[in-house]
Design a protein around this nucleic acid. Structure first.
Lengths: 141, 141
DNA sequence: CTTGACCTTCCAGTCAATGGAACCCCCATG
DNA sequence: CATGGGGGTTCCATTGACTGGAAGGTCAAG
């Protein structure tokens, strides 16, 4: 298989696959003409990486996971640890984004969004503490 | 005010402030010795940017927002549009992350996490469709 | 023999900083 | 006057995970 086929099957752009070779996630052989020759194992590794990336694992974590994958005697606890770390990161990120979302939607609710120039969004960004500004506008202390 | 004071007041590292000057978010004057001399307006802009960044606005959006801030006659609708765009992006990101979280926590629930080598996390990453693998394990699909 | 779709390498750019080297400035102390 | 320390300055490289593009080699079809 050459890179185009692998790209199609794995859903990864050819550029990305070359990059993954660069950083050692996969090491395809080469044909006489210099083209990359991907075996099934290469394909599997790339599919693995594509899925792990889609779950938000970093490249470094992919390296780890692949090493664990290669190691037939690894303990599932090792894998679980990597996954748990990642789960915690994802949950923290969700919490961050939810805080942003709440602040932003509050600001949008308070903004008339018409032709007038006064806008609580800019006022808040430019002015005082975010929550204080919001409280003041609501008159709630 | 010189950069250290501004850094302390705005909470932004001095490095970042220099970077923000580089990309034109702020344009402090210079003292005779070449040191940056920040006026109140510079300070305000930096605080503004720090807050907008904390809400996940990109640097480009910060540029836009600052332009709107400078424009006394802007319509609040313009600001609202930028904020709405950002809100949509944040919501999409949350949805993505929630899907990741759900998949990962399902995988972790199914993984014994002990010394045995068999691990549904790696099986799933390496094997078939994520949902199919999970269904199969649960015997529900 | 040419066309066009592949493939190759290498270099640059993205975003938003961050790290570090090498050097300048200014004040206080001895 | 030297020295030390804690500011500041510039410039270059690096991060993470790619992505874009140029310049050129390879191969099958017409």
């Amino acid at each position: 298989m050459q890179i185009g086929d692998v790209a199609e099957q794995s859903g990864l752009p050819a550029k990305t696959i070359r990059y993954y070779e660069d950083i050692g996630l996969v090491t395809p052989k080469r044909d006489a003409n210099g083209y990359r020759a991907f075996r099934d194992t290469d394909m599997h590794r790339l599919t693995f990486v594509a899925r792990a990336r889609a779950l938000g694992f970093t490249i470094k974590q992919c390296h780890n996971l692949l090493a664990l994958w290669d190691d037939k005697s690894r303990a599932s606890a090792d894998v679980r640890a990597v996954a748990g770390e990642q789960l915690a990161r994802i949950e923290a990120k969700i919490a961050d984004l939810e805080a942003m979302r709440d602040t932003l939607s509050r600001l949008m609710r308070d903004c008339s969004g018409d032709a007038r120039p006064d806008c609580p969004i800019l006022e808040t960004l430019g002015g005082e503490d975010l929550d204080a500004a919001s409280r003041r506008r609501k008159g709630a202390g």
